[in-house]
Design a protein around this nucleic acid. Sequence first.
RNA 1: CGGGGUGUGGCUCAGGUGGCAGAGCGCCUGCUUCGGGAGCAGGAGGUCAGGGGUUCAAGUCCCCUCACCCCGACCA
Length: 570
Amino acid sequence: MRWSRYFWHTSKEDPADAEAPSHKLLLKAGFIRQVSAGVYQLTPPGVRVLRKIESIVRKEMDRSGAQEVLLTVLNPAELWKETGRWKLYGRELFTLKDRNGRDYCLGPTHEEEITDLVRSFVNSYRQLPLMLYQIQVKFRDEKRPRFGLIRGREFLMKDAYSFDADEFSAMFSYESMKFAYDRIFKKLRLKCLMVEASVGAIGGISSHEFVVLTEYGEAKVAYCEKCGYAGNAEVVQLPKPEEEQEDWKSLQVVETPGTDTIEKLSSFLGVPPRRIIKAVLYMVNGSEPVMFLIRGDRSIDENKVEAILGTENFRLAEDQEVRELLKTEKGFIGPFNLPSSVRVYWDNSTYGLKNAVIAFNKPNHHYVNANPGRDFKYGEFVDVCQVEDSDPCPKCGSALKTSRGLELGHIFLLGTRYSEPMRAYYTDPQGQEKPIIMGCYGIGISRCMSAIVEQYHDQKGIKWPATVAPFELDIICVNTSDQPQREVAEMLCLTAEEMGVETIYDDRDESPGFKFADADLCGFPYRLVVGKKVKEGKVELQNRHTGEREDVEIETAISKVKAYLEEDKR
RNA sequence: CGGGGUGUGGCUCAGGUGGCAGAGCGCCUGCUUCGGGAGCAGGAGGUCAGGGGUUCAAGUCCCCUCACCCCGACCA
């Protein structure tokens, strides 16, 4: 491909609206262009990368026995009403009406539609198991699109669905997807962690996420370097700590004016935050007060709260509600003399404290040296504590590490959440009608493109792994007005194409520095520089990943590149 | 959905206290140059996000709307 005729336009300036490296570089290098919030166009090189990711995913899906389908973008509301998700999915669903006023949505995921397809043809155990997948554009009206392709409102996703006769067989399908995902992320060269994920309110059986560790992700994960355990922060259970060993001191009431935060209280009393018991009041379903008590140096994980409450419909109590219910101010909430309507939960972190500080619903006052058993009684213990670095691993007890992560894949054993309400039943060998056991398995294809850039870039630009690079080789002619140089460059270009090396030939009438900068920015794994050394029968081969340069014979240059590439892609 | 910020040429931005619309990059023409975003000369390119208001006069002051970005809670 000749760059002078190729629709590829890079920019010298950093784009103003981008923050994340992948967002910045994909824009600057001209792979994507923004059309509106969370909606992007892909240019020819952008499509080349995307298609490569897609074909890696497709190949591994096919290999694991999944069969490709193409479902619709425009989904009729009826199917969504069958499972109740027309209402449940909420504002994220892009909805529209046709000319006759019928309701549709732009598919954000396709459980309903695939179940509809399968139930129309499958009615016997003899037709199971079955695994179908598609690579399709999805639409979600995200509250906050972010970071370019990382979270768009329109994005490309691979979604697979498994259909099995029983749970054992379904587990088998699930495991086969785990292996497929492992192979896919290896091929994409993504350093990826498989973490245990929450099964959520759907009541699924098993769920894992595949996350890459990057600060531009929205998942919080904890992992153990000792035993290999890894989990989404919200599923990592934190146990009660050891009871502290310290003699009881005498209980005191201390005036603590204006100490409405843990920091202020801690420095006012000279007591470390971990000796303070913090009370947080939530309102569930608008009006049911629930109090959580947690150690002052820890914070509440609202995903865990959701799991305990069984609803996502809760929020922190307003100042006014605190006054009405507890006759006190925020910062002075405690578990004493509460109205009977207030449910109380003690986080595990509060267990075994000695000589603690705790509020008792009197503004500007705290108890100091409060001790469980003498001054107060614990109630029901729960785990709502956010995981932090060096918390104990739930498997082996070693210190955990925590990190931000970007979720690229999610696999989920669904059970009969969709097959039951949609009556996707089959007849078993005994003639009994049974619901099909389902699983679903997603990979954010366009998101992977960003994730790869997050993991493979430097100051100068992108460093595409050979498996997904838009072109494998960039040929630069230093002086295009030098006849011999140009002839060598053209010849190398032809040879490369004949030998099946995907090549772009930078024949643009620009200075060498300009072309070098673009080559670094756009991230080709290999670059051949045709310059002065042509006289000696040599050209320079550069490796974008290692930065290494070597002079190679013109005759063998391409076969050398090809050999390197084969090694890289292995 | 809460909080913060920004909208001026294709891109990145400048335009105290109202007074002829600007620069750099990019683009076009010509000449020179050619191993790390070249030089000189000439040229084109604007609904200053949109609407309303104040004023002799608004990019600039006031009100409203819209768009986009960032920080938090949620999805791949």
